[in-house]
């Protein structure tokens, strides 16, 4: 069992947390895209021949 999360006494907090989760998903999508791009560009370079 996780330790008890802090009790939110501010009604605006729930909305802020929802927005935070959306921000986190967007940022995570960028991270995955950078990972895939770094490999895909190498695959492309290998097919295109030596870079120099």
């Amino acid at each position: 069992m996780m330790s008890q999360p802090q009790v939110m006494k501010d009604p605006g907090q729930a909305q802020r947390l929802r927005k935070a989760r959306r921000t986190a998903l967007i940022v995570a999508a960028f991270a995955v895209a950078f990972f895939l791009f770094s490999i895909l560009q190498m695959v492309w370079l290998q097919h295109a021949g030596p870079a120099h």
Binding site: F30, L36, S38
Partner: peptide, 30 residues
């Protein structure tokens, strides 16, 4: 966020070069 995935990509390619027969960084394989 911008650069750690790039490191992950680079070491993944090291791994495939070593164990899965790719030649990303192997001159003998292109």
């Amino acid at each position: 966020i911008a650069v750690m995935p790039v490191l992950a990509g680079a070491v993944t390619m090291l791994l495939t070069d070593k164990y899965f027969g790719t030649s990303f960084f192997n001159a003998a394989g292109g």
